[in-house]
Structures are given as structure tokens and as C-alpha cells.
Design a binder for these strands. Sequence first.
RNA 1: GGCCCGUUCGUCUAGGGGUCUAGGACAUCUCCCUUUCACGGAGGAAACACGGGUUCGAUUCCCGUACGGGCUACCA
Length: 509
Amino acid sequence: MTIRTRFAPSPTGPLHMGGVRTALYAYLFAKQQGGSFILRIEDTDQNRYVPGAEEYIIEALTWCGIIPDEGVGFGGPHAPYRQSERKHKGFYLDYARQLLQKGNAYYAFDRPEDLELARKNAEAEGVQGWQYDASTRMGMRNSLTLPEQELKHLLDQGTPYVIRLKVEPGQNLTFRDMVRGEVSFDSSLVDDKVLIKADGMPTYHLAHIVDDIMMEITHAIRGEEWLPSAPAHLLIYQALGIAMPQYAHLPLLLKPEGNGKLSKRDGDRLGFPVFPLQWEDPISGEISSGYRERGYYPEAFVNMLALLGWNPGSEQEVFTMEELMAVFSFDRVQKAGARFDPAKAKWFNEQRLRAMRDEELGLRFSLQLKQMLGEQDPRADVSFATTAAGLLKERVQFENELYETGKYLFEAPSAYDEKVIAKRWNEKAKVFFEALTETLSKTEEFTAEQCKAAFEKLANEQGIKPGDVLQLFRVIVSGQGSGVDLFGMVALLGRAEVEARIRRALASL
RNA sequence: GGCCCGUUCGUCUAGGGGUCUAGGACAUCUCCCUUUCACGGAGGAAACACGGGUUCGAUUCCCGUACGGGCUACCA
């Protein structure tokens, strides 16, 4: 049997990082087993549809490298993959009719206000959670209580109705969850869930089952918030006489601080993204930041997400997608929710950046510099950028911090670190640096090694300990008391630039 | 309220009846390296929620309690 998993978000807004993780696990598992990963869009609630959300989901998954084999935007043998389109094909109603025929479902004519009233009355009598179930359904207006004549009449008249699942109470409902093991429920506590809404659309409960069956899904992976409705889903499968796929209910992602699950607000409040890509709300115009725009590598983002709630059982933490595919398993998925730690997320990006060869990083940095400084600027040159990137690589966590961190490599300083100047600048130093330009101009090649040797030789000649002028030299060249390797920087800047910077410093100090 | 799920350092987690003096990573602190900063290296502080069982022995198994989370819609 070929393994088939799916990710089935509803297009109600941008895809949250928790959703991306769910997709990732489903993807990793399918790929590991040589199976397929399907993207299905669950847009059965027309009221909550948000324009652009679907495109966002596809773009986000693609950015992450979680590429569906089939689905909306990718095609496939089970198209359409959008539930609103599948509804028009009558798929859901077909299954609902089956359930109706077998006596596992019934028509209900209660209007929303009727249900509200029932709830209110129950509350007045001190009952907390009223539900439409075996204990209450006989007091409602449905095909179980209405005389056949009236039922036919209502149906003929086109009176709005819903189709509900008829749950038999008193059964023990048990199934095996891939992360939790055996879980069981009492069917008496399961309500008669609406299967088909008054507008003809199926609810999630019916739709996902019909689609999972038709799309031959073998493993259904979803968030923990679905666990309470899983027994109802089991009942539907049983009524249909079809084996339920394996289910995995993933733990939720929790806020870095305080209580509750990670939400959109936390990111804005604590300064990290909760979405893979930046999102602009089409109605309010509100912007939510994204990992991509923040400068995260998709590989690092995926790596971080994979380890949030799952671990390989070894001490390895840095993984490529291929490595994740090889070692991922649901029995190593944590049962408890995972608190998200933005600092660790940055660390993953840092690891990815470090692992990159200077040439690769340099090429990317060069592109960035060309945008900032102009195509023709020599400082945006690939070889310059590569050396600069090599010098800066271990001082940043993000590629987009390279320029800021090493700004002095691109611009002569306009001010000099006062502390160092106050401590070290004196007549002797002045004499030394006046002679230094001359000395440096005589080096055969302007390399780090030769500059360093020349520098030390001059210091010796003048009876100065190199340590007394070394930091001063750094300040003269970069303006700062600390930074990248001094002679590496000198060699990169080149003879003319270094001389110019020394002269400038001499003139202003 | 009811139902379900969970609970190991601040965070992500390993482990699982005796090997636990509870391991790793992030963050944090100290020291070393270094012209500086960073990197790196060494080290420190830091956890089995609580109470009962079961057992020769429990952090590990069972039951309670507490706490956390989710669900409780004609939303997904």
C-alpha cells in the first residue's frame, strides 16, 4: 500500500508556523515511505474565506521546500482538491445519503435560533453544556420526531435543513493514535454533529472523511485540537463500513511566555514572526511579519520547526530536509505542547549560515550589495563580497546583518572610538602612523601576512610594543575598537584605501 | 461546568523500575584563547509538579490532587 498523507488547511488567513509544522511532518512521513503528500484546501465555510490566503499557503509551502505531489496548484488524479469545487460534484451529499439510508444520519430542521433557545433553557436549569444528542434529539424538529407526512411536506417545500450524524450512546470508542497510543471516548458524550449545513456545504467532519476516502489517504495528520472530535470521525467511518486511516494528533505550539497557544499577536508583541511569509491583511491592511522577510533561510526554519515537538533520539540537531526524511518518526513526537523559543530559532539560522561556504555566501552577499550600492560598485564585487563575508561570517546570525556588522569595510569611518583614542593616542603613536603609510606602501604584495610583518617591523624599529598601536590601527581603519580580523580587513580594503584612511585619521586626531 | 490530552533544568528535550552523582542543545554566568569583538575551548548554576500506592527499590508503573493545554458552532 502506498502511503498518502495530506495537509488540509482552510484559507482563512496566512498559514501559521504551527500549520507549517503539521504540513512538514505529513510531508516527511510520506516522503520517507516513498508515498505522496497532498495539499487539499478546505474552504467549506464561505463566510471565512480570505482572498489571497490560498496563494499564500502554496507560496509558503514552496518556500519551505514542502512540495506537494498533488493538490491545489499542483494538479493530480484526484482533482479537484478544493472542497468548494468537490461539493459541486456532489461527493459529500452522496456520502451523506448513504448515512441517511443506513439510519446513521437524519434531517434536522431546527433553526439556529431554536438551538440557541434550547441552550439557553438548559442553562437556566443549570445544565452547562447542552448538546444535540441522544438525550435531546427527540425533543427537536427532525426526521426522527416529525411525522412522515410532515417530513415529506417540509422537504418538498424546500425548508432549510441540516443533516446530522446519529450517534448511538453507550459505546466505547477506541482507536490508536500514532503519537498518543490508545485513546478512548464514551459515545454518550459525542454530539450529533452536523454533516451537511443548511447552505448545502459539508462541515469539516464529513468533508475531510469523504475526501480522505476518495483521495486514498492512509495517514491523517492534524493538530491536537481535533482530538475531541476524533470519536465522531471514527463513528462516521464505522457507519460507512470503511477502515479509518491512521491518525496522528500533533501537540500544539505554545507562546514563548505566558499561557496558551502561539498566536498572531505574540509575534508582534515579542518581536518574532509567527508566519513563514509576510502577510498583509486584505481588509485591515495590517502587516504580519514573516520568517522569509526577516532573513531566515527556509532550511533553518524547517529545521527549527522539525525539532519543536520531535527529536531524533540522537544528539544531532542540525538537519537537512533529506536527513529529516530519513529519521523522522511519529513515535518520537512529543505528547505535550512545545513552547516556542525565538532565540533557538535564530541559532538554527546561524548554524545554516556557518555551514555555507564563503563562496556561496559571498555570491549572495554580493547580490545584496549590488542592490544597495549599485551594480557597478567595486565593493559589491563578488571577490570583495566573498572575502568580506568570510571575515564577517562568524559574527552574524543572519545574512542581512552582514552589511551593518561590517559597515566599516564599505565606508571609511566618520568618527573614532573615543575610549581607545583617549587611552592610546599620543605623540609616539602619531609618529608611528605617520611612518606606517610609507612602510605599507613598500610591501611587495598587500596581503594580510605582509602588512602584519611590515607593521610589526616598524613598531620594533620605533621601540613600540605592537600591542600599544594595534588597537589604535583598528580604530584608525574602522573607527571601532573591535571587529573583524585587523590585517584581514586591511588586506581587503587595499593599499590605497588604507593609506587614505590613515591620512584622514592623522588629520582629524 | 463537562470531556479529552498532557506535566524532566528558564526553553526545546534524552532517559526510563536499580547504570541517575538525571545527559544534550539554546539562553545565562566564569575562565582560557585573541590586538579587540566574535568564533572556539573548558567549566558553573539550573529540572524528574505534589500526595498516596505497587515494589527490596520509583523520576520511571498505577491512582488521586494541582497545574497547563485543547474541545464543548450549521468554524476549521
